[in-house]
Each structure stands twice: as C-alpha cells, then as structure tokens.
Computed example of a mutant assay.
Amino acid sequence: MCFYLKPPRGGLQLHILEETINQRTNLLNDLIKKKDLPTNFNCLIDGTALDRTGHFILRILSVKEVPFTICMKLISSFEVEMRKGIAFIPCSKWKLLLQELYMFYLKLECDLLLNNSGFLEVFDDPRFEYLIEKRRKIQIDKDVPIITVDKIEQEVEKFPLCMQILHTTLKREHRLHHDDRVNLTLFLKNIGLPLNEAITYWKLEYDKPSNHCTSCSHQWKDSEKRYVYSIRHMYGLEGSRRNYGCRNCTQLQDDAVSVRSCGGCPFKLYSNSSLKKLLEERNCSEEIINGILTSRVHDSRDACKLFVKYQRQSNQSMTNVKNINFSNPVHRMYINAGEPANASDVNFTE
C-alpha cells in the first residue's frame, strides 16, 4: 500500500469498490493487531488503480466528525448536526465541506500573503503586470462572459434598481458622488468588468463637462492619476491590495442619502413619489407599483423582489417571489440573468 497524492480517475463498479475498501480495512486491522497478513490482496498492489482508489475512499470516509469552526456555513444553514463543538457531516454534504475547507484555507493563505511585504512588492514588478494583462485576455469560465463597456447598456435592464439609478445618473450628469462612484465600481467589478474596461467606462464620462446638477468640477485629464489609482485600489492592485466586494443590501439600506448622493436602496430610502416615478419610467404597471409601495412598508427587500418578478416577466421568465433570495446587488443581478440567487460573485481583479 502506498500514500497517494493524486486521486484516481475513471469509473468503478460498486461491488469492486466495496471489495477494495474491505481488503484495505482488513489489512490495516491485521497490522494493528499484529496478525498474519491476508493472502487475498489483489486490490492492494502498489501503484494500481484499485490501491489508489481504496486509499482515497478511506481518506474520505474518515471525514465524519470535524470541528464546527471549519464548516460555519453548513452550521449556520442547519445542514449538519453538531454536538459539543463537533459537526457530523453526512456523505451528501462532503462536497460542500470540501468546498468550504478549500475557501477557508485559501483565505487563510491569502491573508498571510497580504501581510508579507515581499509579496506586495511583486505587484509593482512590470513583469507581473504583464502576466496579469495576459491572463485577463483568457476567458476562464465559458459560462461567465467578460463584460465590456460597449455591452453595459445591454445589461443595464438586468441591474438591480439601485445600480440602474447610479448608471443612469452618471450618463446624465457625467459625475457621481464619491460613495456612489465606489458602489458602482465595485458592482461592475463583481459582475465581470475588467480593470481596463472600468478605467475606460469612467474616463468616457469624466472627460465630458459636468452637468449643472452636480457640484463636482473635476476633469479626467486633470485628475487622471488619482482616478486610475482609485479604480486600481478597488480592484485590489493598490494600497493594501484587499479584494473589495460589492456592498450588501443591508449596508445600502442603512446609507444616509445626502443632497448630492443618489445611492442607497431606493426601496428603503426614497419617498413614495420618487420611487413611483422611477418605476413608471421603467414601464411598471400600476399593479406592480402599488404592490411595491405596499411591500416596502414591511420589508424593502420584499419590494425589491417584486421588482425582480417584473423584470423576469418582461424577459419571459416567471419567478416565484417567495423563492427569490439575495444578499447583495451582484446576487440580485444573477437572478435577472437567470442564474441561481446564491451564485458566487464573479471577480475580475486583473
């Protein structure tokens, strides 16, 4: 028997798999009890597919009890049983456990790297920037298309209302309040807008003279370095190089709307008349508008769910409002695009 690093490939009939496990278990028991070795060991020959399979299956079967601290998502969603700090993982949840373990240790290693000054210096190396740019051109996942500036207008109708407002305000006034600019940048980043496209997106608007409705008088040509640095910072390539994510719905609902800002959750923060006007501009029926205005009294997220239903019906895709769940504008975007509400955020930091 060997210790293998690479898992087996291919398929195996259940009765052969069972025999492989039995032979390996019996051998381990005999070794522990110092008994004579068994004569039937055709599944235990070093280097064979059966020996490799038996090794990995027993490794998996041994993961039955784990500390609750490494499977917090499973615990919080009540998907596993826990007693005295130990989580008991059924076989149907092993895949989820492995995913959570992977993300746990990946985050741990990333945090260690970010605290390593030598690692941060790598990002200032022009060779590394060249590699980032080359990698950006490779579409990693065929199911997650990269969004470009010229395609944003086609995607706007799928945006949650909070982000639609920011985008249309930017197009109309060519400027946004600082917090609104941050929120829109992070949203676009997380739905797949690469760094160079984000720079182009903001440059196209800030190159134009500001509308009289905004007090911002900055021009792109005069403040290009500052704007580019700010965008690169939000993409995790400057400063502390944190991988910033889009703000969640609760944070947007708690925003204090200022005179210059148009951000935050419109279902929570806007007046009935202002929200009604926005919905009418998007051709919502009177029934939908009245339903949204009623729902917002109890829960602004329920009102947003009704707007989701309107958008999905417009796209010939019906959705049961009760089954709609999202935690931030990016998840909300996936719902409109027909993806599961719990889809992982797309994140292009290059």
Rank of each mutant, 00 (worst) to 15 (best):
209 P>T: 05
209 P>I: 03
211 N>W: 09
212 H>P: 14
212 H>G: 06
212 H>V: 07
214 T>H: 10
214 T>S: 06
215 S>C: 14
217 S>P: 08
218 H>N: 06
220 W>P: 05
222 D>F: 08
223 S>Q: 10
223 S>G: 03
224 E>Q: 14
225 K>C: 07
226 R>T: 02
229 Y>M: 08
229 Y>E: 08
231 I>Y: 04
231 I>F: 06
231 I>M: 07
232 R>F: 11
232 R>A: 06
235 Y>F: 13
237 L>N: 10
238 E>Q: 12
238 E>I: 02
240 S>L: 15
243 N>P: 07
243 N>M: 10
245 G>Q: 10
245 G>I: 12
245 G>Y: 15
247 R>P: 15
252 L>E: 15
253 Q>K: 07
254 D>L: 12
256 A>Q: 08
258 S>N: 12
259 V>A: 09
259 V>G: 07
261 S>Q: 09
261 S>L: 10
266 P>I: 01
268 K>L: 04
268 K>V: 00
269 L>Y: 02
270 Y>N: 11
272 N>E: 08
272 N>A: 12
276 K>R: 09
276 K>L: 04
277 K>D: 03
278 L>N: 03
278 L>E: 11
279 L>V: 08
280 E>H: 02
282 R>F: 01
282 R>T: 00
283 N>G: 03
287 E>W: 04
287 E>I: 09
289 I>L: 02
289 I>D: 01
289 I>F: 00
